[in-house]
C-alpha cells in the first residue's frame, strides 16, 4: 500500500507523532483511517470523473458502430463489429491533414505569443509601481469582460482593409501584444502568480547588476514555470476549440478542424431506438478533432506534475 503522500504526510509517517509513540493500537487505527480516506478520495474522484467522461465515452463508442449496432435496442456500449470506415470517411471529407496543420499553426503560434507577451506585461504590472498601473489593470479586466463578439464587426472591417481576412494574422498578431483570445485573462493569471513570488532573488540579481530583461528571463521565467504551463495549456485548448473568430476571419484552405465539421452532414445519421439521430461519421470526426489536443495536453501535463518538486527548490 502506497502512502497518500501530499508531500507533508510522507514525512509525518516517518517521524512518529508525539502522542502515538509506543501506542501500537492508536497507530494501527490511524493507518486504517488513512486507508479509508484514500479509498474515499478515489471513489469520490472516480464518481466526479464519470460525469466528465461519460459523454466522451458515449461519443467514442458510437463512432465505432455500424448502423445495425446503432439501431439495436439491446446494446448501448457493445460493438459487435468494429467500424473504422467512419474514421476514413471523416478523414477524407474534412481534408483532415490540412485542417490539422492549420490548427497546429493557430494553437501553438498563439500559445507562444500569449506566453511571451502576457508574462512580460504581467511582470511589469506585478513588480513595478508605476503611476497608472491600477488604471491599466482595470482596463485589462475590461478586455476580459467584453467578449470578442462585441468588437467583431469593427475589427472585421479593420482587417479587411489591410487584407488580413483569410490569413492567420488576425488571430496570431494580437496574441503577441497581450490581446487575442482571452489575452487579458492570461495577463491576469500571470499577475496573480508573479505577485506571489518572493522578491529576494530579484534583489540579489539587481545588486549583481543584472538588467530587468535578464532578470525576467533568468529569474522570473524559471520561477514562474507553473503559471507558464497553466497559460500554455489554456491558450492551446481555447485556440484549438475556438470557433467564433476562426469562422469569421478564416476561409477555405485556412479553416480549422472545427469549421470542417460542417462538411459532414447531419442528416445521414441513423435513428436510434431511443429516438435520437446519431451520425457516426460526425462522431468520428469529433473524436479526430479532439485527439491531437489530448496528446498535446498529455505532453504538457507531464511537466505539470513535475512542478511540485521544483517549487520546493525555488524557496
Amino acid at each position: 500500500m502506497r502512502r497518500p503522500t501530499a508531500t507533508g504526510i510522507r514525512l509525518r509517517s516517518r517521524l512518529p507523532d508525539r502522542e502515538s509513540i509506543g501506542n501500537a493500537y492508536q497507530s494501527a487505527r490511524k493507518h486504517a483511517g488513512r486507508i479509508l480516506l484514500t479509498g474515499a478520495i478515489y471513489v469520490l474522484l472516480t464518481e466526479f470523473v464519470f460525469v466528465f467522461v461519460f459523454p466522451y465515452l458515449f461519443l467514442f463508442i458510437n463512432s465505432l458502430k455500424y448502423d445495425f449496432d446503432l439501431r439495436n435496442i439491446n446494446t448501448q456500449w457493445i460493438i459487435t463489429r468494429l467500424n473504422t470506415f467512419n474514421y476514413a470517411e471523416a478523414f477524407a471529407r474534412m481534408n483532415y491533414l490540412e485542417g490539422l496543420r492549420n490548427n497546429l499553426v493557430v494553437a501553438l503560434g498563439s500559445m507562444a505569443g500569449h506566453v511571451l507577451s502576457c508574462s512580460l506585461i504581467a511582470y511589469g504590472l506585478a513588480r513595478f509601481r508605476f503611476p497608472g498601473r491600477n488604471l491599466m489593470f482595470m482596463a485589462i479586466l475590461l478586455t476580459i469582460i467584453i467578449p470578442p463578439q462585441v468588437l467583431l464587426i469593427p475589427l472585421y472591417i479593420q482587417y479587411a482593409r489591410i487584407n488580413w481576412v483569410g490569413t492567420f494574422l488576425p488571430i496570431l498578431v494580437p496574441t503577441f501584444v497581450g490581446f487575442g483570445l482571452k489575452g487579458g485573462l492570461f495577463i491576469f493569471i500571470f499577475r496573480q502568480f508573479l505577485k506571489g513570488l518572493p522578491h529576494s532573488y530579484e534583489e540579489a540579481a539587481k545588486i549583481e547588476g543584472a538588467g530587468y530583461f535578464s532578470i525576467f528571463f533568468r529569474i522570473i521565467i524559471p520561477m514562474a514555470r507553473t503559471s507558464i504551463l497553466v497559460v500554455a495549456i489554456l491558450s492551446t485548448i481555447w485556440h484549438w476549440n475556438d470557433y467564433f473568430e476562426p469562422t469569421i476571419f478564416l476561409n477555405r484552405s485556412t479553416t480549422l478542424l472545427f469549421q470542417r465539421l460542417g462538411t459532414i452532414s447531419y442528416w445521414q445519421g441513423v435513428m436510434t431506438p431511443t429516438g435520437a439521430y446519431i451520425n457516426p461519421i460526425m462522431l468520428a470526426a469529433i473524436v479526430m478533432v479532439t485527439i491531437p489536443l489530448l496528446l498535446i495536453y498529455f505532453i504538457f501535463q507531464r511537466h505539470f506534475i513535475r512542478g511540485i518538486e521544483f517549487s520546493g527548490l525555488a524557496n
Binding site: 506585461i121 511589469g124 513588480r127 513595478f128 509601481r129 498601473r133 464587426i153 494580437p174 501584444v177 490581446f179
Partner: peptide, 21 residues
C-alpha cells in the same frame, strides 16, 4: 521602467480594443 513592459500592451489596446470598442 514598468512602462517598458506595459508598452506593447498599450499599443495592442489602442489597435485591437479601443478602436473597435
Amino acid at each position: 521602467k514598468g512602462y517598458l513592459f506595459a508598452a506593447p500592451w498599450v499599443a495592442g489596446f489602442l489597435l485591437f480594443f479601443l478602436y473597435p470598442l
